[in-house]
Design a protein around this nucleic acid. Sequence first.
DNA 1: GTGTTAATTTCGGCT
DNA 2: AGCCGAAGTTAACAC
Lengths: 231, 231
Amino acid sequence: MRLVVATCSVDYSGRLTAHLPLAKRLLILKQDGSLLVHSDGGSYKPLNWMSAPCFFTEHEPDDESLALGVTLMWRVTHAKTADMLVVSIHDIHGEFDHDLGDEPGLIKDGVEAHLQALLADNIQELGEGFSLIRREYMTAIGPVDILARNADAQTVAVEIKRRGEIEGVEQLTRYLELLNRDPHLAPVSGVFAAQEIKPQARTLAEDRGIRCFVLDYDRLKGIDDSWGRLF
Amino acid sequence: MRLVVATCSVDYSGRLTAHLPLAKRLLILKQDGSLLVHSDGGSYKPLNWMSAPCFFTEHEPDDESLALGVTLMWRVTHAKTADMLVVSIHDIHGEFDHDLGDEPGLIKDGVEAHLQALLADNIQELGEGFSLIRREYMTAIGPVDILARNADAQTVAVEIKRRGEIEGVEQLTRYLELLNRDPHLAPVSGVFAAQEIKPQARTLAEDRGIRCFVLDYDRLKGIDDSWGRLF
DNA sequence: GTGTTAATTTCGGCT
DNA sequence: AGCCGAAGTTAACAC
């Protein structure tokens, strides 16, 4: 990622034609060639940009641009469409280059994680007498979302998904098979919990003796007195 | 604008709850307190963000966070809603602070400006014998988009809008009133040119003897042999 | 200022 | 891969 703070003007040509007059701005050149032009305010949307896939080239200004004070030009052309973004740089006030490496975390797991935290905090939602053993109970094939005990002191493994589909039932089935080999835990029953459970997944789960439980996110949030504790 | 490249994790709580696991990312702290968290790829949309109006605070990590390797925490809370963004910074790899000043150019005038350039280059579109006097003809109350001469050597003032509404007609009316006081130019007639002209605007314009002209952007682009000259 | 609609939308799920 | 719909949508525009 290459960061440049520069006085520049920007021209875009594509679905529409747009121009940014000379001003000091932040230019973000990403690894994939995409370019963002940001001002020091506004929303997260850049003033102008070029999305990947695209090609970046840096070149000297022509005589006409040179006469206008341009010292460096950037050109980003889209790989498929004819979209083009041209940055005419007059002065560079700061520059910083750094390799960020891969981005591991896509945002969304937050929902599932929070559903897990909410249910763990309110495990009695699954039935009277339920108690939490622990969240993220580690096994050889991965962590079980929630391990709990029911009113009969029997172990219950809970798999949580935002949307319950067959794959989630399969995952829970594998956990159950493994957990039931442990004499300290067996017999372990399963609960498949999700905000929405697809009919096919429900059928498969119930056929395997796995209980289905629909999570009401807003309701859980409402009854959870520990809301906000994350911060 | 403060730019920080840091290894960090991010938690957001608001309309949804989201989490970004530990990784190296770009943090952009803008003048208005808004914060953007960008990775080195993807679209122009940040991985996570907080929009203005909001408040930014920097503080020391609590013991729990400290034990996890957090050295610095940022918290951005929305001014009105309960939205909150928390950045747990482990390492800072680079930092850059710079005052960008005001952003003069909102993107959109580019369309109108280009329409103006296209029509100026093809002024005969308004009628046979039309010739350009000049673009951005300056008056005491602002620049007239285009000043031209028709086949009868009469002066014509052209106001260009992307979408023609009443306000544009009023603007042109003011210019015409002023221009007609100039004996060198008078009598000056008006042309209201836009990609789309609202019925109310058309009625008002024609009532005032102003001609309406619908601009076909794609057609103008097609016939304009100077297309691409901007780059 | 408030509601309605388009967007260089982006993003995800689903067929 | 293409279509459809939601988004922490954002942004522009009409009323």
